[in-house]
Design a protein around this nucleic acid. Structure first.
Lengths: 116, 116
DNA sequence: TTTTAATTCAACCATGTGGTTGAGGAACAA
DNA sequence: TTGTTCCTCAACCACATGGTTGAATTAAAA
């Protein structure tokens, strides 16, 4: 179990820092589909397993995923309220756009091509 | 003028990295009130002017603020769509659950054909 | 038991980051 | 002209980050 979130501000640091890396964003997208083992997560990436393992630790410390060890396998899953604090901060910023179909469509197109 | 945003993914890197620092988040909040000079922005902080100046450069490169030099004074302001890409990413993340990704794609496909 | 597989740890490297101080360059004030 | 103010740049420092490889740990398989 990870010790965290003494301080909200520091938690925001961790969330945004975790999201600032393309590999970690891709990992989160993968985990949207299903819970996965570390090896499976690493499969589509061109980096070492150790590097992916470190990314997962960053994501866990930011409270975005949890890891549960079952036997040899460490199952990773997205936490339900992962982005909650980030969303609250961004909303408090007051610039949140209403639901934007064009942007979303573009996003999904890129995402499906693996560009995000 | 800053050269940027060749690549959306890299832009997200810059935005989230910019937001991952508490000082920079505070600066953004300050700028929500009004456009400000660098010296005025630095006033409430306990760090050097040079450090604040560097933070502003980070925010500018991330496309979150603009700086316009008028005489000696560099006026900083928040860009209107500053957090747009971040919001899109986060919103999509929240909505594109496994079950609803297909539906969303279908919706967009229909929309592209003018059926909605 | 021996081997193989899944994951992490340790040590290392190159680079980035946030901070400092001090030296300027421009623009305004006296 | 001579200061003075606003800001940036350059050099430096300590530390974090993302990557590597190789060893160690743990659990399953043979």
């Amino acid at each position: 179990m990870i010790k965290m979130k003494l301080d909200k501000s520091n938690h925001l640091d961790l969330i945004f820092a975790a999201l600032s890396d393309k590999t970690r964003r891709r990992i989160l997208m993968l985990l949207l589909e299903d819970d996965m083992s570390v090896t499976d997560i690493a499969e589509p990436f061109d980096t070492s397993l150790a590097a992916i393992s470190k990314h997962l630790i960053v994501l866990e410390k930011a409270g975005l995923i949890s890891r549960e060890r079952k036997g040899r396998i460490s199952w990773c899953k997205i936490l339900p309220d992962a982005l909650r604090d980030a969303v609250i901060w961004i909303e408090s910023f007051g610039q949140v756009q209403p639901f934007n179909l064009d942007a979303l469509e573009e996003f999904i197109a890129l995402n499906l091509k693996g560009n995000i």
